[in-house]
């Protein structure tokens, strides 16, 4: 589903060129569960941004669902992000003035979905996260775990093919972190591919496939043979 071929991403910092990604080639199939690990500054976040179409590679090609997405316009990129990709961030990125329900509704609003359908879908999504009674709360009235669950409901409301999560538990206590991981693993079980960038080897240990990034290159790419269920 995601096919990266020779992806480079270089930044200009002062008069120096920093190569965040150095020819990464990678293939992630539908429904996979991938943990991306690596030290700070290794380029793993850049990799996630490129996969999420937030960042354009300097060189290389990227095929998403069989389409070359390296040449799309801003408008087409936005539409592709909306329809195929769900983001989960370390800092949740909920809009503070909007209620939980309104935050979850944002992708539907941006997609121009009929307002009468939205309420139902939002209510179902929140109920699925166990947040039915928190729909009218603003983010500052929610705990960290609840906020991340609102963010996950938002990321999945348009039923994306892949969820890209950047340190989804990095800002949560252990218990909430485990809850959040359980939820996204359940999504994965329903067939949504999952790419998680993390420092936490406990989380990484749960993924079937682990990709180690060092200095903008894939250093190791291992698939665990034994499956725990």
């Amino acid at each position: 589903m995601i096919i990266l071929d020779g992806i480079h991403r270089a930044f200009q910092v002062g008069d120096q060129t920093v190569h965040a990604l150095n020819g990464v080639s990678l293939r992630i199939d539908a429904g996979e569960y991938v943990a991306v690990m690596g030290p700070s500054g290794s380029g793993k976040s850049t990799l996630l941004n490129v996969m999420g179409l937030l960042d354009r590679p300097t060189a290389g090609t990227y095929h998403l669902d069989g389409h070359d997405v390296t040449t799309l316009s801003d408008e087409q990129l936005a539409a592709t992000r909306r329809d195929k990709i769900g983001f989960v961030f370390q800092f949740f990125h909920l809009v503070p003035r909007l209620s939980a329900a309104e935050n979850v509704e944002l992708p539907l609003m941006l997609a121009g979905v009929d307002p009468t359908q939205r309420k139902d879908r939002v209510a179902k999504a929140l109920a699925g996260m166990g947040l039915a009674d928190r729909a009218d709360h603003r983010p500052d009235q929610l705990s960290g775990g609840q906020r991340q669950r609102v963010a996950i409901a938002r990321a999945t409301i348009l039923e994306p093919a892949v969820i890209l999560a950047d340190e989804p538990t990095g800002n949560l206590d252990q218990q909430s972190g485990r809850d959040v991981i359980a939820i996204i693993e359940e999504l994965n079980a329903r067939g949504i591919a999952l790419v998680v960038v993390t420092h936490d080897s406990m989380i990484a240990g749960r993924a079937r496939r682990r990709i180690q990034i060092v200095d903008g290159n894939v250093e190791s790419d291992t698939v665990r043979e034994t499956r725990e269920s």
């Binding site: 983001f87 992708p107 997609a111």
Partner: peptide, 16 residues
């Protein structure tokens, strides 16, 4: 800024 970034990530083109 982060709200704008979020809207873009959720699929809002610059036009929106």
């Amino acid at each position: 800024t982060s709200e704008i970034g979020l809207l873009k990530a959720l699929g809002a083109p610059g036009r929106n």
